Computed example of a mutant assay.
Amino acid sequence: MTDEQRRKTHFGFQTVVEEEKAARVGAVFHSVATRYDLMNDVMSMGIHRLWKRHTVQRAAVRPGMRVLDLAGGTGDLAEAFAPRVGGRGRVVVCDINASMLRVGRDRLIDEGRVGNVDFVQADAERLPYADESFDRITIAFGLRNVTRKELALAEMRRVLKAGGRLLVLEFSQPAAPLRPFYDAYSFKVLPLMGRLIAGDSDSYRYLAESIRMHPDQETLAGMMREAGLERVEYDNLTGGVVALHRGTRL
């Protein structure tokens, strides 16, 4: 592979140079930030809350733990983790997008839930934390937007404590019988919803395309093992539309 090829990546179905992807993804989430939670409810018919609840249960967070929620955006996972880690623990919401962080911080402030929650703007490929800083790391519907997933996974493994767990909740490859319906919904209904509700059909077209370009269940499991994580396994949710991958740093 040449240097020129290495600099290329996907932005949905488009091929772009790596330096462009972060800016383009940033523009997408800046556009949808204030309507992000509403659109998630509408697009998934509320099922995304069940997927996230499953993630929280699987995380098995205990009092005193330090939790890093990457691409934490509007703070819904942090809201669930904060009472579980208690006053001796800490939850860090980390997102590259300032607009998403602002929405999440404002919402948790309004709800009085920021006592043990920090908000940090940072890139998942270059985490500003020392080795072995966190007991748990979660990333929900964010990994597919990362330019170099292998670097981000290696960073997540680096900042996990020994015995700590990474949980990746992401859209994946649905079972074959679901795919025709899923494709029709993704490429026809989602952009229309984006236009009517968020005033932005292009961003939701990108989100549908980014899901198709994301590694399937087994490929992502292999990437996590290559990053040095062990005991890697995954749960298929809603027929494989979404998968929750888990890995441990031993």
Rank of each mutant, 00 (worst) to 15 (best):
L166E: 00
Y234Q: 04
F29N: 10
Y234D: 02
V92P: 06
Y129A: 01
E19W: 00
Y36W: 14
F141H: 01
P128S: 03
V92D: 05
F13Y: 15
A154W: 02
R246Q: 14
R84K: 15
H30T: 15
Q217W: 09
L151S: 08
R6P: 08
G222P: 02
R144I: 05
M39P: 13
H245E: 11
V114K: 00
V103G: 09
K149E: 01
I137W: 08
Y234R: 03
L160S: 07
K188P: 00
V85Y: 11
L50W: 13
K188Y: 12
Q14N: 03
A176I: 12
K21D: 06
F11S: 10
V241A: 05
Y206M: 09
W51Q: 01
Q121P: 00
S99L: 09
Q173F: 10
P174N: 07
F181I: 14
M45L: 15
D41C: 05
A59L: 12
F134W: 08
L160C: 05
I96H: 02
R35L: 01
L196C: 09
K8A: 12
R157W: 01
R90P: 00
T248P: 01
R35K: 15
E233L: 06
M213L: 06
S201N: 01
P180Y: 14
I211R: 02
A184C: 11
L143V: 15
A221H: 11
L244I: 07
A184F: 10
E4Y: 07
D76V: 04
S172T: 11
G86H: 08
L237F: 03
C94K: 06
G64S: 02
G104W: 14
V16F: 01
L196S: 05
R53T: 03
P83M: 03
R144D: 04
T74N: 03
Y182N: 13
Y234E: 06
V241Q: 04
L178H: 06
L244W: 07
G239L: 01
G87H: 00
Q121M: 14
A175H: 13
V17C: 10
R7Q: 09
G86D: 07
A208R: 01
A130K: 02
R66C: 11
P191C: 02
A82T: 11
T248Q: 13
L50Q: 12
A122Q: 08
A176C: 03
N97L: 06
Y129N: 01
D106N: 09
T55M: 12
